[in-house]
Design a protein around this nucleic acid. Structure first.
Lengths: 200, 200, 200, 200
DNA sequence: TATGAATGAGAGTTCATTCAT
DNA sequence: TATGAATGAACTCTCATTCAT
């Protein structure tokens, strides 16, 4: 419930209004649009209206910016998922909640950062990758718990690990084709995904 | 049947034994492993045992190499899909054939090039993207035709365009987690994917 | 006698207890250890526990700090030499007094600043170099007078200007190898230097 | 005798006519004149008439240039000292030979590089310092052997290690004041240094 | 065709200095 | 006085590309 508020208070998620927060949002956008390597520090600085040298008052290196984008995103979505799970009463509700939540993350405000998380993985140094992996494991734990519960309730069949992986690909790929201005809402998309998973 | 042989004969797909062919294979590997931007022309040259300047006797620019990897890959997999479809008698067989064929492409010999096709898209200039998109449309046409046929036969339900897109993500994502040395074969993976799609 | 006290009173040598004085001492240390160019204003500020911007309330520029270190050092050692000379009755005593005094300067509390004076000379702008050179001439005058007197007394032979220059190099170089915790005292070192110079 | 020729043949000392050799000579000059830190890679490139990027075809980094200057210099002077020692029949001759040889090194063609060796020591990374130190030990070994022999022959008195250190400083310092166009030749300077050392 | 030295634009980063608070 | 975010020029280094050999 208070998970998200707590993260912000602890400073683990930067206030989006702050200079640092605005830079991270712009960085997610540019990294997604042009790729991390093709985005220059000068691009980043210009996007928030400062000089290139000033970037280094907020981050020690360009890679630190990439890391911060990834880390804050995964912390954020994990907290949102926990909140969503708490408010869903049945296994089916919880499954739908996760689908909706992940789609909202991919397609909504944090969508660009989520895409960066997937596409710019190799640009992160190994030690940094390990740090993110730890956070990712917590997030994936929520999914596996919920899918296992759904399988026990007879909602889904087959190997839940494989199922989750199919879902990861299918849902993250939506960023490449889903258009919010089209005829389908995110809620409907989540329903379509539920149909894919649930055998009744 | 003779589609692939024809492409090679026409020179649209390079002989993998030739100097150019070996360079393309190594390029796919390096682009996948390190990313296009982080792979230098020197890396590419060294991987086939020549000097960096000599690369430009085979390709006009680094981007040309990326384009060639992508173009040849999509030509190759389209030809393979056509061959597979011709040998499958029923709608269900044809659906399974496509799943198997796409998974084999992603996870087999051309897997690295397929990954490059997905992950390095933004490194291609727009005119080049358009060229690849035309080829991709042909490939996707095969999928949509087959899925439509399956829907008419009552095999699958829902919007086939959405279904294909869910599948694109789910199958291409396998490259990140599937281990050939594990307990599951690619054939079994294709079966699992079929279960996901087909409602009986 | 009262030379040193007078300089402090006049404000030409900064009170080492003051903020400015502590900064100069730390600066001498850092400049010696890392070199002037490699020492950042941030390093200097951090060494006295203030922020980098605050440095410029005490000094107009980084070069001013270097200049102050050099100027105060040469003023200080000149004053000490004058005092030492006044208390030495014979030419031989006076020669030993200078040797002892210069060695104490190089190896003692002002040693780091003396090293900076030698090693960071080129980092000073030409007008500033000229200012220091004037002070240096006064200092060297004391040496030449004393050596000339020693030569007239038959203590030393040869060209006193050349002799002084040999000595300058020999004594300043001690900073690189002399260890106070070793078996030789500075007094003994001064004696060794005297043996080098005096032919009896 | 053939020591120097051998070093050149082995490629441990670069041919001064080659691009690399000319760069090293210019680097020694600039490093001495402006200091290593204040000399930019662009300065170095311009001094031999190439573009800044081209420097990195010859050296991997700016520090590599500094290292090469130091290493080649100490190899060169060690070889020259060995040759000079072989041709000197008596202990006194050998002592004079070393004095002359070191002065020629400091004041002659390699003088700038020798100065760099002394003044830019801190700009070298520690592993590189260790490499140079090993070479320096060989060089200093020649001095200590010759001084010990001279002491056994009654030519010099006192601690030869301290004596060598006084000499190091005195001789290297000549670079700051000796003018070849003045009235004193290097040979006479070597004689003056011998008078300083030898007690007859 | 192959080489490899050279190019030169542009990358990430540093840092003395300024200035509103 | 002190702060610390911001500046902006300059730094070392990278790299796709060219070209004389």
């Amino acid at each position: 419930m208070k998970q998200l508020a707590q993260l912000i208070e602890e400073g683990r998620i930067t206030d989006p209004q702050s200079a640092r927060g605005r830079l991270l949002a712009k960085a997610a956008h540019l990294f997604k649009e042009k790729g991390y390597e093709r985005t220059t520090v000068r691009d980043l600085a210009a996007s928030v209206g400062i000089q290139s040298g000033s970037i280094f008052h907020h981050f020690r290196s360009k890679e630190d910016i990439l890391f911060a984008v990834m880390e804050e995103t995964i912390l954020y979505i994990t907290a949102k998922m926990r909140e969503a799970l708490e408010q869903a009463p049945t296994p089916r509700d919880r499954l739908l909640a996760l689908l909706r939540c992940e789609l909202e993350s991919v397609l909504g405000g944090t969508g660009e950062a989520m895409t960066v998380l997937v596409y710019e993985w190799r640009s992160l140094s190994e030690p940094r990758q390990d740090e993110i992996l730890k956070l990712r494991d917590q997030y994936e734990g929520l999914w596996l718990d919920t899918l296992s519960e759904a399988r026990d309730a007879g909602l889904v069949k087959g190997d839940v690990a494989v199922l989750r992986r199919f879902l990861t690909g299918a849902l993250s790929w939506t960023i490449t084709w889903y258009k919010p201005e089209g005829s389908m809402t995110v809620e409907e998309l989540a329903q379509q995904a539920l149909y894919l998973v649930v055998k009744e």
